[in-house]
Amino acid sequence: MHGKRRRFDGLRTARPGNAEGLACHSGSGADTGNRSALNKGTTMKNIGIIGLGNMGMGMAKNLTAKGFDVAGFDMNGEALESLARLGGKKCKDAAAVGAVSEVVFVMVVNAAQSTVVITGKNGLLETMKPGSIIVVTATIGSAAVKKLAAQAGERHVTVIDCPVSGGQKGAEAGALTLMASGRREDFDRCADVFAAIARNVNFVGAEVGQGQIVKACMQGLVGCIYSGMFEAMMLGVKAGVSAEVLFSVIGTSVANTPLFQGAIPAVMDRRFKGTGSNIVNTYKDLTITLALAEECGTPMMTTGTAKQFFQAGITKFPDEDNQCLIKVLEDIVGIEVKRGA
Rank of each mutant, 00 (worst) to 15 (best):
R12A: 11
R12K: 13
R12I: 09
T13V: 15
A14D: 11
P16T: 08
P16K: 05
G17S: 08
G17Q: 10
G17R: 00
N18P: 08
N18R: 11
E20K: 13
G21W: 11
G21K: 13
L22G: 15
L22N: 14
L22E: 14
A23M: 04
H25Q: 12
H25E: 04
H25L: 09
H25M: 04
H25G: 06
S26E: 09
G27Q: 05
S28H: 11
S28V: 08
S28T: 15
S28K: 13
A30N: 12
A30Q: 12
A30L: 12
A30R: 09
D31E: 10
T32N: 01
G33A: 08
G33M: 11
N34Y: 07
N34R: 13
N34G: 09
R35W: 09
R35Y: 10
R35K: 15
A37Q: 03
A37K: 03
L38P: 03
L38S: 07
L38I: 15
L38V: 11
N39I: 06
K40Y: 10
G41W: 02
T42W: 02
T42A: 09
M44E: 08
G48K: 02
G48A: 06
G48F: 01
I49M: 05
L52P: 00
L52C: 02
L52M: 07
L52E: 03
L52G: 02
N54P: 09
N54V: 14
M55D: 00
M55Q: 06
G56Y: 05
G56T: 06
G56E: 03
M57C: 07
M57P: 01
G58W: 02
G58E: 01
M59Y: 04
M59G: 04
A60P: 06
